[in-house]
Design a protein around this nucleic acid. Structure first.
Lengths: 254, 254
DNA sequence: CGATATCTTGAGGAATCTCAATACTAGTGG
DNA sequence: CCACTAGTATTGAGATTCCTCAAGATATCG
C-alpha cells in the first residue's frame, strides 16, 4: 500500500486538526441528500427536514485528521456523508483499540455524558454533517420520531458492539479476519456499493487494532487465507472473497 | 465455591425455563419501588408512574434459569430489581462470550430488531420487572421523557461496551481481572452497596467468558494478585481490594 | 459425611506477539 | 520518465502469554 494514506502515529495529540466547517448555504441541502435514507435524517419527512437543515453544518476533513478527541467536550453529533473514519480508545501506554469504522450514513458523537468516549479520526478524506448538540437536543424535543430513530440507531450500535465482543474475546485470528471481511462486504452491500471484491481502505495496523491482533498477525493471516484459496488480494486495498459463504462459515468457526 | 450455584452447561437449550410471572396486584407497585431511581422508571414522575405500573409484571427466576434466549422473539424488556444476571452469545462450537453482568437497576431486552441479541441467564436468584414490548412502545409514544431515558441508558451501555472492547482486545490477563474488580466495586458503590470487599457472585468460568480468558487463567491471576498483596480472597465470593487506587492503576496498565 | 461442582495448581503446547530484516507501493522531485 | 523516499506490508526466528489437558483440593448441599 502507498505512502501517506494516513498518519499512523498512536498519539492523536500532534495530529492536524484542520477542519473545514461551513454552514450550509444551499436552500435545501437535506432533502437533496443522496444518503439521507441511510441516516438519522430518514426519520423526518420533507416538511420537517427544513428544521434539520437549519442547524446542520458541513465538515470536510482529510485522511489522518482527528475530528474530535476522547474526553473532549461533546459539542456535536455527526453523520458521515462520504469517506471512512475510525473510532478508537487508548490505554496510557499507547495501546489502541479501534471500536469501529464508519462510512457513508453512519452517525457518531453519540454521548449522554459531557465528553466523547472515543477519538474519531479520518481514514480517508471525508465529509460529514455536523449537528451542534444543543440545537439538536432542542430539535429532539420537537420531533419524537427523530428521538426514536436515534434510539434505534443506538440499539443497533449496541448489538454490533456485542458481536465485536464475541469476536475479540473468543475468535481466532483467522475467524477475526474473516468476520471483518464479511462485515465490510455486508456494509458495502447495504449501501449499494460493490461488495466483492470489497474495498478495504484501512491499513493493516488499523485492522489489527480493530481485531485485537498485531499488524504482523493480520498480514500473515491474509497470506494464509490467500494460500488456502479463500480470498484474493487485489491491488493494495481490495479483497475478493472467492466463496463468500465459505468466508462466512470460517468467520464463525464452522 | 459451592456446588449448584448455577448450571455451567454451555448450551442453554436444556436449561430450566421455569419463570414465575405475575401481574402486579399491588395498587401502586412502582411508586413504592426502592430501586426506581436507578432505573428507566426514574424518568417518570409519580403521576405518570401509574401508567407504567399498569403494564408491568414481576418475574422471579432461580440461579441458572434462562430468562430468554438469543434469537428468540423479543417480547419484552426487563428491569432487574434483585439478583445478578449474565448476558451471553455463543459460537456454533459452544465458545461463549458474556457481554455483561446485570444487577439491581439494570435493564435488558433492548432490541429494535425482532429478536434478542443475546441469552439472558440468572447468576443468582433474581426478580425483574417485565414490560411487554408492545405495551411499552405504546407508552413511549406518550412519554417522550421515558423515550429519552431509554436512549440515555442505551448510550451508556454503548460506552460501557466500548470500554469492554478495549479490555478484550488490548489488555493482559492481570489488567482484565483488575478492571473487572474495579468495575464490580464501582457498580456496587453506585448502588450504595459495600464495594470493598466487593461481592463476586459469578463463577470463575463466567468471569473467564466475560474477560476472554479461561477458567484456569482467571484462577491463576487471582492467585498472583493475592500473592502480590493486591487483593485478598474472602470466603468463596468476596474480594478485598487492598489498595483500590493501585488496582485501578493496574487495570489500565499504568 | 459423601457427592458433585467448582476452584486451584502443574506441566506442556500452541497461538500470537516481539523484534528484525526485507520487499512493496505510491507519491516526489530531478 | 524514472530513480528516490517514506510509509506500509510481508516474512522470518525466537519469545511469551495464555491455553489445554490433567490431577488434586475445596466448598456446599442433601
Amino acid at each position: 500500500m502507498g505512502a501517506k494514506r494516513e498518519d499512523a502515529a498512536v498519539s492523536p495529540f500532534d495530529m492536524a486538526r484542520a477542519q473545514l466547517i461551513e454552514n450550509r448555504c444551499d436552500s435545501d441541502p437535506c432533502s437533496a441528500c443522496a444518503v439521507r435514507f441511510l441516516t438519522v435524517c430518514d426519520a423526518l419527512d420533507a416538511a420537517d427536514l427544513d428544521r434539520l437543515a437549519e442547524i446542520v453544518q458541513t465538515v470536510t476533513i482529510e485522511a489522518g485528521d482527528v475530528l474530535f478527541d476522547e474526553a473532549e467536550p461533546a459539542s456535536a453529533m455527526y453523520n458521515v456523508t462520504q469517506g471512512t473514519l475510525k473510532l478508537y480508545k487508548l490505554l496510557p501506554d499507547g495501546r489502541r483499540q479501534i471500536t469501529g469504522f464508519l462510512t457513508t450514513g453512519d452517525f457518531l458523537g453519540l454521548s449522554v455524558e459531557d465528553s466523547y468516549a472515543y477519538t474519531a479520526q479520518a481514514v480517508t478524506d471525508a465529509t460529514l454533517c455536523r449537528f451542534p448538540r444543543a440545537k439538536l437536543e432542542h430539535l429532539l424535543a420537537d420531533f419524537p420520531k427523530l428521538q426514536r430513530r436515534l434510539f434505534a440507531l443506538a440499539a443497533n450500535e449496541l448489538a454490533a458492539a456485542q458481536d465485536q465482543m464475541l469476536l475479540l474475546g473468543r475468535k481466532t485470528a483467522r475467524e477475526k479476519i474473516c468476520s471483518f471481511l464479511v462485515g465490510l462486504a455486508d456494509k458495502a452491500a447495504r449501501r449499494g456499493l460493490p461488495s466483492n471484491p470489497v474495498d478495504v481502505p484501512m491499513t493493516r495496523s488499523d485492522i489489527a487494532d480493530y481485531l485485537g491482533l498485531t499488524t504482523e498477525t493480520v498480514s500473515r493471516t491474509f497470506t494464509q487465507l490467500k494460500a488456502s484459496q479463500v480470498i484474493q488480494l487485489i491491488g493494495g486495498n481490495k479483497v475478493r472473497l472467492i466463496d463468500a459463504m465459505n468466508v462466512e462459515a470460517l468467520a464463525d468457526g464452522e
